[in-house]
Amino acid sequence: MSQYAKELEVAQLAVQRAAILTKRVFHEKAKGTVSKDDKSPVTIGDFGAQALIISALKANFPEDEIVAEEEADRLRGDPQLQDTIWELVRSTGLDDPAAERLLGGALADKAAMLDVLDMGKSQGGARGRIWAIDPIDGTKGFLRGGQYAVCLGLMVDGDVKVGVLGCPNLPVDDAAPLTADMGAEGQTDDEGRGVLFSAVLGQGAASRPLGTGALVEPRKRIAMRPIEEMAGATFCESVESGHSNQGESAQIAQRLSITNPSVRMDSQAKYGSIARGAGDIYLRLPTSKTYQEKIWDHAAGDLIVREAGGQVTDTLGRRLDFSKGRTLAENKGVVAAPAAVHGQVLKVVREVLKL
């Protein structure tokens, strides 16, 4: 078996099971949003998906640490919300018994679910095996039926070794181009949608359809698209103007002679999209001098793009550093592009940002 084979299998199945839960929430439940300290919406899907992923990781790798976005504190005083999430967690499983057994089966009860949710409080760092989880990256995209992702990455001594993204609303077809409306409402998981991206350091990146049981075969290798003329390139950015400076992105596109409109979508679905050549460049430009990106928002996508032939740095040309704790404390922004043109893109980014 190749290195990290078990970690890759468990991660893909855990993300797939969590994605099943998120789709159930979207189709069956009121979204149940509550307010976080930063006022962004949280859904019952966030808590349920995180509980399923952590339970699978702890069943297989009990000594590993976990950095996760959600905590159970806000649930402990809300029995009704607890009941809603517990019913989802209890009744969501893979329809393949062998795959379900590998993930460790169901949680015992509500109390166990709350305890599992709180196992994601690791502070991260540069030593040991640490998993980073974002149960629903792009919560606003999820709520409106746009793009979102279930994200899981394994870091060993601060270096990302395994990355998995479950994107229920992206087309399965790797050749499907990005379109300007890809991040809009109505991109829900109808037939032909739902893709699982994965990568292991040094072993390339791949995609396969999201399934409901065992991993769907075949697994297809993916690669970034060579850019022959920059005018024909497509770049992605965040939907929310608070996440990335869209005005500066427009200036960068103009200086690069890119004529296609930018594709705005939520979540690490942007990383997966450029990794398979549906798009080409992903820019996340700082809107605040003090904001620090969270490691769970980038770990899996960073590895998948690099293993697909891309380069990922911050706006100063530094590799993303996942060894500094729960945030990318030493980085500002993100510039992801095919390796052959990354330097050209970065040069223009630095000119526009006056770095």
Score class of each variant (00 low, 15 high):
219 R>C: 10
61 F>M: 00
147 Q>L: 15
48 G>T: 04
50 Q>C: 01
88 L>Q: 01
202 G>T: 07
205 A>T: 08
92 T>A: 01
137 D>M: 10
310 G>M: 14
42 V>C: 11
178 L>M: 05
304 I>Y: 04
178 L>V: 15
322 F>P: 04
311 Q>C: 14
85 I>C: 04
28 E>S: 13
243 H>M: 11
178 L>G: 01
337 A>C: 00
286 P>S: 07
196 L>I: 06
181 D>V: 10
127 R>G: 07
69 E>F: 01
116 V>P: 11
228 E>A: 14
263 V>R: 04
94 L>F: 01
19 A>R: 07
235 F>R: 06
207 S>T: 14
167 C>P: 03
50 Q>D: 02
329 A>T: 14
296 W>G: 00
78 D>A: 11
343 G>E: 07
60 N>G: 00
244 S>A: 05
144 R>W: 11
212 T>R: 14
158 G>L: 00
275 A>R: 02
302 D>W: 13
119 M>E: 14
52 L>S: 04
166 G>P: 07
4 Y>G: 02
256 L>V: 03
300 A>L: 02
174 D>R: 15
244 S>C: 12
248 E>G: 10
103 L>K: 02
142 F>H: 06
299 A>H: 12
331 N>I: 06
224 M>Q: 09
83 D>I: 06
309 G>F: 05
139 T>L: 03
90 R>P: 02
209 P>V: 05
267 S>L: 07
338 P>C: 03
47 F>G: 00
345 V>N: 00
346 L>F: 09
305 V>E: 05
110 K>V: 15
121 K>R: 15
105 G>F: 02
230 M>K: 06
284 R>Q: 14
71 E>M: 10
164 V>Q: 02
125 G>H: 11
115 D>K: 15
91 S>F: 06
308 A>N: 03
118 D>T: 07
147 Q>F: 07
310 G>L: 09
262 S>V: 14
34 V>T: 14
47 F>N: 01
141 G>A: 10
80 Q>D: 12
275 A>H: 04
244 S>H: 10
